[in-house]
Lab assay of single mutants.
Amino acid sequence: MTEYKLVVVGAGGVGKSALTIQLIQNHFVDEYDPTIEDSYRKQVVIDGETCLLDILDTAGQEEYSAMRDQYMRTGEGFLCVFAINNTKSFEDIHHYREQIKRVKDSEDVPMVLVGNKCDLPSRTVDTKQAQDLARSYGIPFIETSAKTRQGVDDAFYTLVREIRKHKEKMSKDGKKKKKKSKTKCVIM
């Protein structure tokens, strides 16, 4: 069974824990209790493949930012979460993405942009803004509501699919490099 290491990042209060708990335990946590770091595991079937999701729910508070490099190193894919009623959390996505790329030393890291709290009427981040940002990053965008469960499975499952595509691409690139290195030079 394939294991996928997913990391949920975003500013404090955007609903990272609520999304994760909704996926794992099928219930909505409405009281806000700032996370330092929590880890969850769940076995699911995605596109006919049974897999184990190892999900790291991270601290959004700035005082825990020193811990970010460590979990970013171990993560295979990242859910970059903002709240649709919090423009600052949307603007912060850029910083999370840049930090992930720096730590992973790669421009090509599996990510999904997630606009959470889409059940709320007080939207300050337009869907088109988020779609445009995701398009500019070359990553999928999904709106979710941890409260109603809308888009929750889709967000995590899409990230797994992005990781699969990335692994497939990397193995193809690896095979191309191996083929090239088999060419021999004969000096007579």
Score class of each variant (00 low, 15 high):
I100E: 00
E91S: 08
T124P: 13
G115P: 06
S89C: 12
Y71T: 02
V125K: 11
M72R: 01
R123Q: 14
A83M: 05
A66Q: 12
T74W: 13
S65E: 13
E63A: 05
V114N: 01
E63L: 04
R68Y: 01
A66N: 07
R123Y: 12
F90Q: 14
K104Q: 13
Y96L: 15
S89Q: 09
Q70K: 06
I100L: 11
Q70V: 03
C80V: 11
V109C: 08
T74S: 11
M67E: 01
P121M: 11
K101T: 10
E98I: 01
A66Y: 01
E91M: 07
R102N: 10
E76H: 11
R73L: 08
V114L: 11
Q70I: 02
P110V: 04
K104P: 03
L113R: 00
S65R: 08
S89W: 08
V109R: 03
V112E: 00
Y71N: 00
R102D: 06
Q99T: 07
D105P: 07
E107Q: 10
P110I: 03
D108R: 07
R68G: 04
E63P: 05
D105W: 06
I100P: 01
S122I: 09
P121I: 09
R68Q: 08
M67C: 03
T124S: 13
Y71L: 01
N86V: 03
T124K: 12
S65A: 12
S106C: 14
K117Y: 15
T124M: 11
F78C: 01
L113T: 04
D126K: 08
M72S: 04
S122G: 14
A83D: 15
V81E: 07
H94S: 11
Q70R: 02
E63M: 05
S122W: 08
L79Y: 02
Q99S: 06
E76D: 15
V112K: 00
V81N: 06
R123I: 12
V81C: 12
R73S: 10
V125I: 12
V109D: 01
D119E: 10
E76G: 05
S65Y: 07
E98T: 06
M67W: 01
F90K: 10
D108A: 08
C80L: 14
A83K: 06
M111G: 01
Y96T: 05
M111T: 04
F78Q: 00
D119L: 05
Y71H: 01
V103Y: 13
G75V: 06
D69C: 02
V114M: 08
T87G: 10
D119R: 04
A66D: 06
N116A: 15
T74N: 11
S106K: 10
K117I: 15
P121Q: 11
G77R: 00
D105T: 08
T87W: 08
T74Q: 11
D108Q: 14
F90E: 09
T124I: 09
V125D: 13
V112D: 00
V103D: 05
D105K: 11
Y71S: 03
D69T: 05
I100A: 04
L79Q: 00
A83L: 03
D119S: 06
P121Y: 10
Q99R: 05
P110M: 03
S65L: 06
R102M: 09
T87H: 12
V81P: 04
G75E: 04
D105V: 07
R73W: 06
P121W: 07
S122E: 13
V103C: 09
E107Y: 10
H95L: 06
V81I: 10
R102Q: 09
K104F: 09
V109L: 05
T74F: 08
K88A: 11
Y64E: 01
N116H: 15
